[in-house]
Design a binder for these strands. Structure first.
Length: 275
DNA sequence: AGGTGTTAACCTCCATTGTT
DNA sequence: AACAATGGAGGTTAACACCT
């Protein structure tokens, strides 16, 4: 086991992209491992029996494994479901057409900049998918608005670190709490929910699927576990190590101005990745 | 110290794969 | 067909060593 694990780690570090390691594949087949990942719908990658030495309490717990050896993994994947809708005022149809035509490599940023240049203002309006909205409301009734504002900062001001974005929320206080802590606390709950099994489109029951926590494989192969028992540490880890990402605009159909009932809107997409 | 070329890391955007 | 998860191409930026 150890020999093959080390070999595989070495090979992964050596290659980029997809490749085959025949020796390890043969070994895996030999120990009756034919699938190398859990089904996409499962958050739990591995089940372990945890024994508490203080209470002798033994239980089975599911852990989710995230690896930094290859590409940075995602915490929440983008989809049409993760689009947020914004109302845009102060932009004419002609200007909108011009803005939509911007097709630079950094078109997200550039289009937002152009809207600002033309004196347009963008304001959170709603969510694209009622199912995801429901799930967010389950975490916190203000979550759609909180994340909606956060996304707006991300796309218009080019700040992507979650911890910085939460700080900005605290300073600007879009929901009028008068208390910056509120945003940090609530957003951590959101990240935690994602980590433990909440998916955008699937109605969430609020129960933790990966009820053990996370196992993180660092880039050098070192393994560390975040147990949900230390929930505060776990949540802090998530906040400190995640960024928002711009997913494909064509694929997820966002970042284009469009008119509906004489009013103008734009969609922005949410995707969270580890850094 | 300041300029310059090279390399590595990071980003952005898009694609693929497997599942339901 | 929609969704979740992850891979990958290729450009941009930062870091570094080297030279003047």
């Amino acid at each position: 086991m150890e020999e093959n694990a080390n070999l595989l780690l070495k090979e992964i570090a050596l290659h980029s992209g997809s490749f085959e390691v025949e020796e390890v594949a043969n070994f895996a087949n030999g120990i009756k491992v034919t699938k190398i990942k859990a089904p996409a719908a499962d958050t739990t990658d591995i089940s372990m029996q945890i024994e508490d030495i203080h209470t002798n309490f033994i239980r089975n717990a599911g852990f989710s494994i995230k690896s930094d050896v290859g590409h940075a993994p995602t915490l929440l994947n983008a989809g049409l479901t993760t689009n947020f809708i914004y109302k845009v005022t102060g932009i004419t149809s002609e200007q909108a057409e011009e803005i939509n035509a911007i097709d630079t490599r950094t078109k997200n940023k550039d289009r937002m900049a152009k809207i600002a240049e033309y004196g347009g203002s963008v304001e959170y309006y709603g969510m694209n998918h009622d199912g995801f909205k429901r799930n967010l409301i389950m975490v916190d009734s203000s979550m759609p608005e909180i994340i909606g504002n956060m996304l707006l900062y991300f796309y218009s001001e080019d700040v992507k670190d979650c911890d910085k974005l939460v700080e900005m929320l605290g300073e600007r206080d879009p929901l009028g709490y008068g208390d910056a802590m509120m945003y940090t606390y609530k957003f951590k709950k959101f990240l935690c929910s994602c980590a433990l099994g909440m998916k955008p489109a699937k109605p969430w029951d609020g129960l933790d699927e990966a009820n053990g926590g996370y196992i993180i494989v660092k880039a050098d192969g070192e393994i560390l576990a975040y147990h949900i028992y230390n929930r505060n540490f776990f949540e802090q880890y998530l906040l400190d190590n995640t960024i928002l990402e711009r997913a494909s605009t064509s694929r997820h159909e966002y970042m284009s101005l469009y008119e509906e009932d004489g009013e103008m809107f734009i969609k922005m997409n949410l995707q969270v990745r580890f850094r």
